[in-house]
């Protein structure tokens, strides 16, 4: 039985790496008593896989996890077992069973939404940054992994600034995976180049992950 679970990685555990998160889920599921299938081989481990890597330092509102259950489990029973043993910062959202042939999360998720909180004092400047980026025909940054100059404009799907009482939130929808992928640090670099430095960001997180097909976005939990 294959299941897909949506969860929140809260701010207190924002500095956990992808590998730490895999470990966290393995242990959580072992504690819960939920029976998960084991892989074969010398070092058996639980069959589970996480969605696209969330960069160290970010928390995530809607992250995803696939797992293969062993035996009959209902959603309610699963939820009650797991919610009793969750570590600090983790919350479980929606979950459902998925057909066995569903593409893996890593391959399926191709768009992510990042949000950056900006205080009042910087909101004015942030509007300028968003306009500037939107109008730019290319946005050249130096990629950290290979020091190559790259245009990330094609990978930025949408940019918005949402004003609120405390200041504003900048929302960026970007491509994940493939040659156009935009990594979060690259986005931060581009924002800085266009007038919004890192010290203007009081918080940042990943708001959501999507499977994008042309102009339509659907959540990994939708058919």
């Amino acid at each position: 039985m294959r299941w897909r679970v949506q969860y929140k990685k809260g701010p207190v555990i924002r500095f956990l790496s992808h590998l730490d998160m895999v470990r966290l889920w393995e242990r959580t599921l072992r504690r819960s008593g939920v029976t998960i299938e084991l892989s074969r081989g010398f070092n058996p481990h639980l069959k589970l896989s996480l969605g696209t890597v969330l960069p160290v330092g970010l928390w995530g509102k809607r992250e995803y996890l696939d797992l293969e259950l062993d035996g009959d489990w209902t959603i309610d029973r699963f939820r009650s077992h797991v919610s009793q043993v969750l570590p600090p910062g983790i919350e479980i959202g929606n979950l459902r069973d998925i057909p066995p042939k569903t593409p893996a999360l890593m391959a399926a998720i191709n768009a992510s939404v990042y949000r950056i909180a900006i205080p009042k004092a910087w909101t004015e400047a942030a509007f300028g940054t968003v306009d500037g980026l939107k109008q730019a025909s290319e946005i050249i940054i130096v990629r950290s992994k290979d020091k190559k100059k790259t245009d990330i404009r094609p990978g930025i799907i949408e940019l918005n600034l949402i004003e609120d009482r405390l200041g504003s939130e900048l929302e960026a929808v970007v491509v994940v995976g493939g040659p156009q992928a935009v990594r979060f640090p690259e986005l931060v670099m581009a924002l800085a180049d266009f007038g919004l430095p890192e010290e203007a960001m009081t918080d940042y997180w990943r708001e959501a992950n999507y499977i994008r097909d042309g102009g339509t976005f659907r959540s990994p939990l939708e058919d």
Partner: peptide
């Protein structure tokens, strides 16, 4: 700490909040 931890190696060494922490 949130501001300086992105600059260091293995920041999770410094953030606590582990399971079973008292």
């Amino acid at each position: 700490l949130r501001r300086i931890l992105p600059l260091v190696s293995k920041p999770a060494r410094y953030t606590g909040h582990e399971l079973n922490m008292i």
